[in-house]
Amino acid sequence: MPCLQSARQTLPVQKVNAHFEVAHVLRQHWTEVENHPQINRWQLRTLSALKRCRTADLGGHVDACTECGTIRISYNSCRNRHCPKCQGKNREDWIAKREAELLPVPYFHVVFTLPETLNQLAIYQPKAVYDSLFEASWQTVRCFAKDPKHLGAKAGMIAILHTWGQTMSLHPHLHCIVPGGGLTKKGKWRTAKSKGKFLFPVKAMSKVFRAKYVKALKSRINPDKELISALFQKEWVVFAKRPFGHPKAVLEYLGRYTHKVAISNHRILEIDQKQTTFSYKDYRQGAQKLEMSIDNLEFIRRFTMHILPRGLVRIRHFGLLGSSAKKVSIPLIHQELGISIPEKEARILEVYNPRYCACCDKETMVSIQRIPKRGPPKAVFSSVPTQF
């Protein structure tokens, strides 16, 4: 069976800056941020990286075009997973790897959401709350998949953790991609009995999800009895969409969700001495686009809530799509379905190319000097345009 290779065509483009950035708010109020009692050391370290990203603080290099002589200064990125400016390349690299794992079957989109009752615990015990969310979601899908009434086979799942709502409020939920079928114990592919609609009944999934979550949470911490009682009194939400039209649509979906952060810089409309104004969609009003203005320190506080604990993995693979299982299961499923792995179609991606010269429209830029972290070299005159 031929190996699926990545075939991508990159279209060099100039980076387009947002007018306002999260970093601008951080620089403006950094003294208050450093002394904020609710910001821990790990969060402060992350915010510091975002504040310094693509500035002279991190150093950089001077590039020159070998054709026209254009000089450009480029500052280094922080590469932090919470940075609004550092996710483009990471996203494209991740999607390229997932292309080789696409199955020629329908995929379903399932969202597992935690109730607001857990928000306070998520602030103080984020790792326990989010690890339990991953475990309970997979155990719910696995439970229904094992049931012969629904599937009777081993399923797979890719889960992506989001902790925010449109206004940066705390709203922990998992976006899950589940193939519409599974492998039986005999290694035979079995298609889900969904009849082109939903994978499993969502009302039944909601109750199982709640029970699985409480069990997972208890295995990590000792929650109050009042909290457990409140959780069982709430109606939990499992949202399911109809399957994607084509496996390639899964990649487009993943590209939108995998490397998102709490807010993108392009959503920030204005920053003044007191407030930050940003756009958001109100899904209760048909995804109407609205604007919100909040105090700058409140904006920073909301953003900080979504900085994940150190080492917490926010994209996880389960079952057939797990890191150890997929090497065997993916070729086996293609073989079972009698469909060979197709040759890769070239994708044209608009990716920033540091060797691209906009003046010559060629890849003729070369690095001629490194910039230390203390700032730009004196030999470079002040009028040189800074490239971000």
Rank of each mutant, 00 (worst) to 15 (best):
C3I: 15
C3W: 05
N17D: 15
F20E: 13
E21K: 15
H29A: 02
W30A: 02
R45A: 05
S48T: 14
A49R: 15
R52K: 14
C53T: 07
D57E: 11
G59Y: 05
T66K: 15
E67N: 14
T70C: 07
S77T: 10
N80S: 15
C83M: 14
C86A: 08
Q87D: 02
N90Y: 01
R91K: 15
D93V: 13
D93L: 15
W94A: 06
W94M: 13
L103R: 11
P106L: 07
F112I: 06
T113Q: 08
T117I: 10
Q120T: 15
A122R: 02
A122M: 04
A122S: 15
K127I: 00
A136Q: 13
S137V: 06
T140Q: 04
C143D: 11
F144S: 05
D147E: 08
H150M: 03
G152H: 04
G152R: 09
G156D: 03
I158C: 04
A159W: 09
I160Q: 01
T163E: 03
S169I: 00
L170H: 05
P172V: 03
C176Y: 08
V178E: 01
L183G: 09
T184N: 06
K185M: 04
K186H: 06
T191Y: 05
A192R: 12
K197S: 12
K197N: 14
L199K: 00
L199D: 06
K207Q: 11
S219W: 04
E226Q: 14
L231K: 02
Q233A: 11
Q233D: 06
E235H: 15
E235Q: 14
E235M: 12
W236H: 05
R242Y: 13
P243T: 03
H246P: 00
P247D: 04
A249S: 12
L251S: 04
Y253E: 02
Y253H: 13
Y257M: 13
K260E: 09
V261D: 01
I263L: 10
H266F: 11
R267I: 05
I268N: 03
L269C: 07
Q275V: 15
S279Q: 12
K281N: 12
D282L: 01
D282H: 09
D282Y: 03
Y283D: 02
Q285F: 03
G286W: 04
Q288S: 11
K289C: 05
E291R: 13
M292D: 05
I294S: 08
D295H: 12
F299A: 07
R301Q: 14
R302L: 15
H306T: 01
L308K: 01
R310K: 12
G319E: 10
L320F: 12
L320D: 01
G322P: 01
K327N: 10
K327S: 06
S329L: 09
I333S: 00
G338P: 07
I341L: 13
P342L: 02
K344V: 08
L349Q: 14
V351R: 14
Y356T: 02
A358Y: 14
C360E: 09
K362E: 12
S367H: 02
I371K: 01
R374G: 02
P377L: 05
P377H: 09
S383M: 08
